[in-house]
Amino acid sequence: MSSLRNAVYRRAHKERSQPQSRKKYGLLEKHKDYVVRAKAFHKKEDALRKLREKAAFRNPDEFYFKMIKTKTVDGVHKPESQANKYTQEELMLMKTQDIGYVLQKLQSEKNKIEKLTAVLQSLDNQPSTRHVFYAEDREDAKEMQLRTSKVGKVPVFEDVPDQIKRKTAASYRELEARKGRVNDLEKLYMDMAMQKELQKKGRKRKLREDEIVCPTSKPVYKWRPDRKR
């Protein structure tokens, strides 16, 4: 029976479109759109109901940390500013530790660059102690072996030169990348050192462009001499 029921031609159901007189109100909402909107509405209703119950049964004597870490501005809870969380001495100590870490990484990169440069120079200046023959195919290699075996020289057939070229090129790329990293670390170290000096006590002022001897894009400061007691 099911096969006969499926064999009968049925007209495809089409949902009603928006009438021409109501085109100005936009697309006609379908049932699937209403289901999504209704679920979102009831979900928000449930969340508000739970919050109202939680507020109604709240214990007025209960303490939690947001009581002292937030404040109410126009009825909205906002966290207090953490600008004065650390003292000036603690900030100076953290700056010193950060500068020490950057300086350590800078020295490490410089040591790696020196070792890599020494290895590449030794490879470039190393003379070849073996006579390597290159053949186009196996037949050519056999002929060269026969010719050189009479003179006492055994040819060496290998693909090492291509591997050495690839490794050398990779080492040079690594060297350039490490040099760029060293330049970035040096700039970062200079900026951090300047920020640390600016946090110290003492009268200072920013020099104008006409007062700078060597023009630079970074600001230049001058400290006024303090009388030592």
Results as ranks from 00 to 15, higher is better:
122 S>M: 04
123 L>E: 13
123 L>V: 10
123 L>W: 08
123 L>H: 11
124 D>S: 10
124 D>W: 01
124 D>I: 08
125 N>E: 10
125 N>W: 06
126 Q>N: 09
126 Q>P: 01
127 P>N: 08
130 R>K: 11
130 R>P: 01
131 H>E: 07
131 H>K: 11
132 V>C: 05
132 V>W: 06
133 F>S: 03
133 F>K: 00
134 Y>M: 13
135 A>N: 04
135 A>C: 10
135 A>Y: 00
137 D>M: 13
138 R>C: 10
139 E>V: 15
141 A>N: 08
141 A>T: 14
141 A>P: 09
141 A>S: 14
145 Q>L: 10
145 Q>R: 15
147 R>N: 09
147 R>Y: 14
147 R>G: 06
149 S>H: 01
150 K>D: 10
150 K>W: 09
151 V>K: 12
151 V>C: 02
151 V>H: 08
153 K>N: 11
154 V>W: 03
155 P>W: 02
156 V>H: 07
156 V>Y: 07
158 E>M: 08
159 D>K: 14
159 D>H: 05
159 D>I: 05
160 V>T: 13
160 V>S: 09
161 P>G: 00
162 D>L: 15
163 Q>P: 01
164 I>Q: 09
164 I>A: 13
165 K>E: 07
166 R>Q: 14
166 R>D: 11
167 K>I: 04
168 T>Y: 13
169 A>T: 12
171 S>N: 05
172 Y>I: 13
174 E>I: 06
175 L>V: 07
176 E>C: 04
176 E>W: 00
176 E>T: 09
179 K>P: 02
180 G>W: 03
181 R>N: 13
181 R>L: 11
181 R>D: 12
183 N>T: 10
183 N>A: 15
184 D>W: 02
184 D>T: 06
185 L>I: 04
185 L>Y: 07
187 K>D: 07
187 K>N: 12
188 L>D: 02
188 L>R: 07
189 Y>Q: 12
189 Y>P: 01
189 Y>R: 11
190 M>D: 05
190 M>R: 04
190 M>F: 00
190 M>A: 09
194 M>V: 03
194 M>Y: 02
194 M>D: 00
195 Q>Y: 05
195 Q>F: 04
196 K>L: 10
198 L>Y: 02
199 Q>V: 04
200 K>M: 04
201 K>P: 05
202 G>D: 12
203 R>Q: 03
203 R>K: 11
205 R>Q: 10
205 R>L: 06
207 L>K: 15
207 L>Q: 12
207 L>T: 12
207 L>I: 09
208 R>H: 04
208 R>Y: 03
208 R>D: 07
210 D>A: 12
210 D>E: 14
210 D>Y: 09
211 E>T: 02
212 I>V: 14
212 I>Q: 04
213 V>K: 10
213 V>R: 12
214 C>E: 04
214 C>G: 00
215 P>I: 03
217 S>M: 09
218 K>W: 09
218 K>S: 13
219 P>M: 04
221 Y>F: 15
221 Y>G: 03
221 Y>K: 03
222 K>I: 13
223 W>D: 05
224 R>N: 14
224 R>C: 12
225 P>K: 14
225 P>M: 06
225 P>T: 05
